[in-house]
Amino acid sequence: MGSIWEYANPVKFSRTAGLVLPWVSIGATVTLVVGLVWGFFFTPDDYRQGSTVKIIYLHVPSALMAINVWFMMLVTSLVWLIRRHHVSALAAKAAAPVGIVMTVIALLTGAIWGQPMWGTWWAWDPRLTSFLILFLFYLGYLALWGAIDDPDTAADLTSVLCIVGSVFAVLSRYAVNFWNQGLHQGATLSLDKEENIADVFSTPLYISIAGFVLLFIALVFLRTRTEIQKRRTKALLARERLG
């Protein structure tokens, strides 16, 4: 068996991703359906929050993914800058739209949950604010990809943006924590769901999280393959023009 870097070859990656994709997709569908149906219909209502608590089966996995997708982009950006593997840069490009959608889902479900719980759609809670800032970082990253024609230049610039952005995202997280403390006291309900979650809720939650992870993998494989094929088309056309 070769090393993981074998998959840095676009053709090899495409082929392998094509083989794995159906299975990952089936896995994602099954776990998502099981996790969400179990979570929505077969868990008891929370004694304080009623049935609104069930939105955690969307909210928590999407929030986790929002952060981890950015982290994955950071890793693939570093791989691109250091080892110059095109697949890595294209995977980062493919992941970003998924990441921003996850961020939006986390923000929206947060708002929908927050309305009955805190009586407001939006509060400048440190966590909510951090997600809003993360959304802005995603937006800038995607806009930069969109603005540059040359694919390698775009990959280089967005990679540096992602790395520097990660540092500033962490800084912002601490800044926001500090800032909110100074403005008003903490939210009336603890946002730390993991702490006060009961076992009966947690199993479907873990299944949902697994479903979101699998869905992300499937989408990234699919989108990276599309990006590779786009590059392939361009390369073929370029060769034809010269010949």
């Binding site: 802005l136 800038g140 230049t153 520097v164 995202a169 912002s172």
Partner: peptide, 26 residues
């Protein structure tokens, strides 16, 4: 980052503003 982009001014603001958050807060 944006020097090679025609009419990159708006993009520049979009990229830079999130980076300004910590400085603005403190």
């Amino acid at each position: 980052l944006t020097v090679g982009i025609k009419r990159g001014g708006l993009l520049l603001s979009l990229l830079v503003l999130p980076f300004y958050v910590p400085t603005l807060i403190f």
